[in-house]
Design a protein around this nucleic acid. Structure first.
Length: 494
RNA sequence: GCUUCCGUCGUCUAGCGGCAAAGACGCCGGGCUUUCAAUCCGGAGAUGGGAGUUCGAUUCUCCCCGGAAGCACCA
């Protein structure tokens, strides 16, 4: 049977570099062995999934040059490729497990469950479902379900013994069954959880090789067990190391730009970003660091994957990008790339209304719009000098803005305005004063284009990166300071 | 807390029982250049610790330590 791989992002935010990372390795595996690569959208979390995000993910992957053989946009023989459209499949399969005795209906309330969890945490024991509804007679459970009582379906799990996972990169990994929870498979809203959906879809879509982050390794027993219950052959698993922040924690937007669109906006070439992701945990046999997707495919071997979690280093990415720009672009190509990057109508149009009123000559434009075309403005402590406020106050304000915006998802002007004016109100200061360090951090100057619209155009990651950069220019916030400020911040929340 | 994974210069990697542990980013010094880059030359910098297997361990085994991840009706 030919090799089939897939990437299965969930459309719950900005397109993540981790998604591209997994996609890259999956794609290389499939292409190397002449198989297919599938894109599947895991949108079973109705509250968090959005169409906008799904589009952004597909656009970003394509921008990077990652193309799929089957997917929601191009169809294929195993569709639909969007989990929300496969609902009946999951219901049907979950039902089958119930009738065969591999799963059971659970009527426990959310309150009981969270209480249980709290108790278990306090007792410092194992945390997990206690099997309360296991005692229910099947007939009674069916009757209650038929009567419309809300419930979930959970899988049964062996009480003793070990589950052996044959990880293709790590070898045999053993996990005791008593460490595995009686996972919910079908939620009360009738949607599957990841664990059910991933198994059903991977099997039905003929996926033979699964690349995913190592965060999944401890839940693999659940998946293997489901394959066994269904009588299916499981795929080969390759658990890749996690991309890391400089402090070694899992790459996160709080600490690092994670959105592919950020790197696009910063002016990285897609080839260079993809190249860089390829050298995270993988290397060419000859040690060459600059390589194209085709070259990576040609030489790809899972055995060359290294397992230490690689720290995402933007400086090295920048160096690599420089090489791509210098070595692969002739002057015409360079000009074209500049155009597709930002010097085009679709990027410029939303900016025009923000500057037209403020311009007397076209030559004024550069000074007014520089911050739409730059990465991080050059800042010093002096940039934040203010006639009324002390540097300490400025720093505090900026930190509060950063925290508030970290928790803010809808990056359109109006919601941003609401959030920030709300913050100013809570802090008891004027919006103008609150925005001062924001203007400086974002544009490098105390005055520039209207802030909320500017933030929207810049996007969340670049905005956050600049605000953090501003904070750093102010001398940074020490642990001690952060603790004190955090307390004040929490007090104004209420 | 429990479980699992991981552990080579600050960072990304090479090594796959046997050459003074190699390359790259970054850093430092120098050459070239009107300047800045690019480029060239040079330098500092690592096998987490301890046992064991072996003639010989970065490499194999065990223990410790450290880091990370998972423990949801999120994926």
């Amino acid at each position: 049977m030919s090799v089939r791989t897939r990437v299965a992002p969930s459309p719950t935010g900005d397109p993540h570099v981790g998604t591209a990372y997994i996609a890259l390795f999956s794609l290389c595996m499939a292409r190397k062995l002449g198989g297919q690569f599938v894109l599947r959208i895991e949108d079973t979390d109705r509250a968090r999934s959005s169409e906008r995000s799904e589009r952004a993910i597909m656009d970003s992957l394509r921008w990077l040059g990652i193309d799929w053989d089957e997917g929601p946009d191009k169809g294929g023989p195993h569709g639909p490729y969007r989990q929300s459209e496969r609902r009946e499949l999951y219901v049907e399969h979950a039902g089958r497990l119930v009738t065969e005795g591999h799963a059971f209906r659970c009527f426990c309330s959310a309150e009981r469950l969270s209480q249980l969890r709290a108790q278990q945490l306090e007792a410092k024991g194992k945390v997990g479902y206690d099997g309360h509804c296991l005692a229910l007679a099947p007939a009674e459970a069916e009757a209650r379900a038929a009567a419309g009582e809300p419930h979930v379906i959970r899988m049964r799990v062996p009480e003793a013994g070990q589950c052996a996972i044959d990880d293709q990169l790590r070898g045999k990994v053993e996990i005791a069954w008593d460490q595995v929870d009686m996972q919910v498979l079908l939620k009360a809203d009738g949607m599957p959880t990841y664990h059910l959906a991933v198994v059903v879809d991977d099997h039905l879509m003929g996926i033979t090789d699964v690349f995913r982050g190592e965060e999944w390794i401890t839940s693999t027993p659940k998946h293997l067990l489901l394959y066994q219950y269904f009588g299916w052959e499981p795929p080969r698993y390759f658990h890749l190391p996690l991309l890391r922040n400089p402090d070694k924690s899992k790459l996160s937007k709080r600490k690092n730009p994670t959105s592919i669109t950020f790197y696009e906006r910063m002016g990285f070439m897609p080839e260079a970003l993809l190249n860089y992701l390829g050298m995270m945990g993988w290397s060419m046999p000859d040690g060459e660091e600059k390589f194209s997707l085709d070259q990576m495919i040609e030489h790809f071997e899972p055995a060359r994957v290294s397992l230490g979690g690689p720290v995402f280093d933007m400086e090295k990415l920048s160096w690599l990008n420089g090489r791509w720009i210098r070595e692969e672009l002739d002057p015409e190509g360079f000009a074209r790339r500049m155009q597709t990057w930002a010097l085009n109508a679709s990027y410029l149009m939303p900016i025009i209304p923000l500057i037209q009123q403020r311009v007397e000559r076209f030559s004024d434009v550069v000074g007014l719009t520089g911050h739409f075309l730059t990465g991080l403005p050059s800042l010093s402590e002096a940039s934040f000098a203010h006639k009324k406020h002390s540097p300490e106050d400025i720093k505090k304000t900026l930190q509060f803005v950063v925290w508030r915006l970290d928790a803010h998802d809808d990056w359109r002007a109006e919601p941003l305005k609401q959030t920030l004016t709300g913050l100013a109100e809570g802090m008891g200061i004027g919006v103008r004063d609150m925005l001062f360090p924001v203007f400086v951090s974002i544009s490098g100057q105390p005055v520039s284009t209207p802030m909320y619209e500017t933030l929207e155009i810049l996007g969340p990651d670049l905005s956050r990166a600049r605000l953090r950069h501003g904070l750093a220019a102010l001398g940074g916030v020490s642990k001690k300071q952060a603790k004190r400020l955090e307390k004040q911040y929490r007090e104004l929340q209420t």
